[in-house]
């Protein structure tokens, strides 16, 4: 039903509802690189990442989004859902394509996370979902 227009409307929420979260994707990646969960968001990787300095690549933020299972850029309830729908245009995810695979992140990570391998894992997961692959480089 087309509602009456009062000249204003309710706003969509910004709150991440953890009750709705679906962490299937994070779990898949953790199977390959379990240490990924040990990230402490120290930001060492972003600070010296060529793609972080020039573009938007921030591994810790991407990590948080995966751990919570939310595609907060798309306002979609879960990242997994975004993945299934083929709408993986999440800012953070899309920025992975700017990764040069230089390996600096891995060199500086105090938790010893093979971050470069994490990048590859995420890209591969998304690539295997063919209709999502648009824009994500093959590796």
């Amino acid at each position: 039903m087309a509602g009456k227009d009062f000249g204003f409307a309710t706003k969509a929420g910004r709150q991440i509802d953890l009750d709705q979260l679906d962490t299937t994707l994070a779990d898949k990646i953790a199977l390959a690189v379990n240490s990924w969960r040990a990230c402490i968001s120290c930001g060492s990787c972003t600070a010296t990442c060529p793609a972080g300095v020039k573009f938007h690549l921030q591994l810790p933020t991407l990590n948080r989004a995966f751990q919570l299972g939310t595609d907060f850029c798309l306002e979609l309830p879960t990242l997994n859902r975004a993945f299934q729908l083929g709408t993986a245009s999440c800012l953070e995810l899309a920025t992975l394509k700017s990764c040069l695979l230089c390996g600096k992140c891995q060199l500086v990570c105090p938790r010893g996370i093979p971050t470069r391998y994490v990048s590859i894992q995420i890209m591969q997961k998304f690539k295997s979902n063919s209709h999502v692959a648009k824009g994500i480089p093959s590796v």
């Binding site: 709150q15 953890l18 907060f72």
Partner: peptide, 12 residues
């Protein structure tokens, strides 16, 4: 708030 995400969160 998940201050690392700069987002309020809610959980039951």
């Amino acid at each position: 708030e998940d201050t690392l995400m700069s987002r309020p969160v809610k959980v039951t």
